[in-house]
Structures are given as structure tokens and as C-alpha cells.
């Protein structure tokens, strides 16, 4: 069944699999996420479920959002994210999605916000090789030529130059689930996922 859940990245560590291999895993605290709203093709143009994550005090939520939450749920939540589905028939508003929906070995896509790198140069941002550090070289980390002269007399759009790097929506595909801990609402994902520790991630099951 196609499904998804919202989680918080806690950090990376290592666990040993049953056959004794060491796996590098990312620990994600995911759910429980109640379904706040169901979007349908007739009404909204697409099928999706809207999930809430992390409780928020009712008095800290703005009135319009409070109405949206309390129409279908008892509590208010900090985050709202949508999971697109082919068919929302199996889900009902108010139902909670927990890590129980995931099994060991399932493949998931993980979407998060990448770490911010600030204003980065071309070596960090685009992988330019740069020049020699020594031997009288006066060319170190600069981008070099960014175009020709009289023709075309401009720098082409999309030229790789320094600028802001990171803090972008990044999706890593086909991550295997190494372990599921129901008691603590944890998913252990095999490998790295985008973002810093504590960052919000959306996990979508693809099988």
C-alpha cells in the first residue's frame, strides 16, 4: 500500500544486522500522524491525504488554522504535509498513520531540506577544481573565465557562479528500511538522508 509519514531526523549511527553486518542508519522519529484532510480528484483536482505532525498548543495556533484542525481532529499540530496517492479510498479522516505502516526492507523516498552552506564559492558549490595553491600561482579558488568577449558580449544565463547554497528541497530515492521500532515511533533508514539533525523529513513508501 502506498503511504507516507512525516518525521524528524535525529541523527546517524550504526546497527548490526542479523547476519552480523554493520549498517549505517539514520534514525527518524516518525509520526503518529493523523489525517487532517482528504483531497479528492473531484474537489481538489488530485488525490492526497494531508497529515499533521507534532502537537502544538491550541492557543499558539492561528484562528483559521485552528478551525481547519478542530473540524476533523481533537488536537492542533505544528506541521502539515500532503502525501499524494493514486487512491485515498483506504484512508479516513482522523485515522492515525504510524510507523506500523512500514516494514523492514521496504523502499522509501525521503524528502527534506538540505543543510545551508551560505554564500558558497564555485569549488564548494559546483565542484570546480581551482588552481594550484603554490608555485607563484595567483589563481586559487576563483571561477576563472565566465564567457568570451565581443561575441556574445554577455554572460550566458545558468553559468555556474558563486551564490547561495543549500536549504533546498532534496529527495533521496530508494532508501531501505533497516528497522522499525514501534514503541518509540522510530524508523531506522539504511543510509543518509537530507538535512540536519532535528530537521523535518517526509517519508514516502514507494512499493
Amino acid at each position: 500500500m502506498k503511504t507516507g509519514i512525516i518525521g524528524r531526523k535525529l541523527g546517524m549511527t550504526q546497527i548490526y544486522s542479523e547476519d552480523g553486518k554493520a549498517l549505517d542508519v539514520t534514525v527518524v522519529e516518525a509520526g503518529p500522524c493523523p489525517i487532517i484532510q482528504k483531497k479528492t480528484k473531484q474537489h481538489d483536482g488530485y488525490d492526497a491525504i494531508q497529515l499533521g505532525f507534532m502537537l502544538k498548543k491550541e492557543k499558539k495556533v492561528s484562528s483559521p488554522l485552528k478551525g481547519h484542525f478542530l473540524k476533523t481532529n481533537k488536537n492542533c499540530y505544528s506541521y502539515l504535509r500532503e502525501i499524494r496517492l493514486d487512491d485515498t479510498g483506504e484512508y479516513e479522516v482522523g485515522q492515525e498513520i504510524t510507523v506500523e505502516a512500514f516494514n523492514v526492507g521496504n523502499l522509501v523516498n525521503v524528502t527534506g531540506t538540505s543543510k545551508g552552506r551560505g554564500f558558497a564559492g564555485v569549488i564548494k558549490r559546483w565542484g570546480f577544481h581551482g588552481g594550484p595553491k603554490t608555485h607563484g600561482s595567483r589563481f586559487h579558488r576563483a571561477p576563472g573565465s565566465i564567457g568570451a568577449s565581443a561575441y556574445p558580449a554577455k554572460t550566458f544565463k545558468g553559468t555556474k557562479l558563486p551564490g547561495h547554497m543549500g536549504v533546498q528541497r532534496v529527495t533521496v530515492k530508494n532508501i531501505q528500511i533497516a528497522s522499525v521500532r514501534l514503541d518509540k515511533n522510530l524508523l531506522l533508514l539504511n543510509g543518509a538522508i537530507p538535512g540536519k539533525n532535528g530537521g523535518l523529513v517526509v517519508i514516502r513508501k514507494i512499493q
Binding site: T13, V27, R181
Partner: peptide, 12 residues
């Protein structure tokens, strides 16, 4: 103890 510590101590 944080959750990370719990996960790490589990298999020790």
C-alpha cells in the same frame, strides 16, 4: 537519555 543514546546502547 536521548533516543539516539537508546538506539546506540541497544546492541552493546
Amino acid at each position: 537519555m536521548t533516543i539516539m543514546d537508546l538506539v546506540e546502547k541497544e546492541q552493546m
